[in-house]
Design a protein around this nucleic acid. Structure first.
Lengths: 208, 208
DNA sequence: CAAAAAATGGGTTGTCCAATCCAGAATCTG
DNA sequence: CAGATTCTGGATTGGACAACCCATTTTTTG
């Protein structure tokens, strides 16, 4: 169950090989996002990636190894998409812009799909310890990004209360809002959850 | 796809039949909670319920019909467990007691399992419209219970702000807190998420 | 209590899917 | 450019699982 066992072709990867591997992960990520991990068959992934036969097993030991790659891929995708907004999370204006972007993104998706990381996490949490830890690590990075902003505000003396707690609570509000939005197919839960949390933060901001 | 098609033996049910059906639903609920819907096989359910062979198909048309029964069963279980606490959600003390009970319950479970309704919802949301609506209806009842408490406070003139929005945000905080708690195997996310939300509500309470 | 209806047991079938194998093509490396 | 390595294609296998069938037993009902 070592890493080498799980990723047979990690050592040497041709440029073409890297590209093929990338296509497989991207296709798998999309399908697992749309249908869930267990409902996304490797045959579907194969077809969507435009590869054939044993390609997947050339790059991944088994479906589990592919899943772990997908979790990392989705973490990068989700955090990457917010990267430019993370820089401004040290002000209420920046927090509100971040909130608006998240809401607008869900609206564009017609409230479908939920959080790419959270959905994976919920599915694997009780049956797949390794995958659960990978998701936990993704959430930790997300939490850290929010925390950095609030800590900066706190360090400047603009924010009362524990910035670490507020960051974790904000991530929780976001996840809960996304889940309810996904299930109700309305953006309101996400809007209200984030607004309440940001209002709470603002109530602890000392106007200079 | 009518109701009769889906539940062959709805019309007449012997006392013994009701008991058997109940055992099947309870076993299925437990297994789907522990392993997820797709990973819980009907063979597992059969064995856990202590019935044999075609019993399940005698009471349910297919796995989908059983899943819908499980969603309703879990909704009753989750709301039933909180019923005594719901009555006091019209005061900060009652809200805090409710928060304590939820946290304590997760602690007893060692942070495993997450929310029985939320987990199901996340799994079925994109692939099973009928099940998604059943989960949405469960969440609505939950939201309503919280809303009733906050509305009462608001009606008495003790609470500023929209009680409906606060109720929805509270449910979102709870769901997000449960998800993060499940994935991190620590109660802190749930504690912090609920505390932040209740602090926010309290900041809008006018002390009499 | 007798006929009808409901409940139970176990076996079967067909499908789907993860995983494996081997042969041949493309690409890298010395 | 030649030998080695990596990449690709297609075919196959073995197991698991949802769904179905029929015969037997138990319970209900008139």
């Amino acid at each position: 169950m070592s890493t080498e066992t799980r990723r047979p072709a990690e050592k040497k990867l041709t440029r073409k090989g890297q590209e093929t591997r990338r296509r497989i992960v991207a296709a798998a990520a999309q399908l697992m996002y749309e249908r869930g991990v267990t409902e996304a068959t490797l045959e579907d992934v194969r077809a969507a990636a435009g590869v054939s036969g044993s390609q997947i097993y050339h790059y991944f030991a088994d479906k589990q190894a592919l899943l772990l790659a997908v979790i990392e891929h989705q973490t990068e995708a989700v955090l990457g998409m917010q990267e430019s907004l993370f820089a401004d999370l040290d002000s209420m204006a920046g927090l509100r812009r971040w909130r608006d972007a998240l809401v607008e993104y869900q609206r564009r998706l017609q409230c479908r799909g939920g959080c790419p990381i959270g959905s994976l996490g919920s599915e694997v949490a009780e049956t797949n310890p390794e995958a659960r830890l990978a998701v936990a690590s993704g959430f930790l990075r997300w939490e850290t990004a929010i925390r950095d902003g609030l800590r900066a505000m706190h360090a400047r003396g603009e924010l009362d209360g524990d910035p670490d707690d507020l960051a974790l609570a904000t991530l929780a509000a976001l996840q809960g809002g996304l889940l309810l939005t996904q299930i109700q197919r309305e953006v309101r839960p996400l809007e209200v959850a984030l607004d309440s949390m940001l209002d709470h933060i603002e109530s602890r901001v000392k106007r200079p």
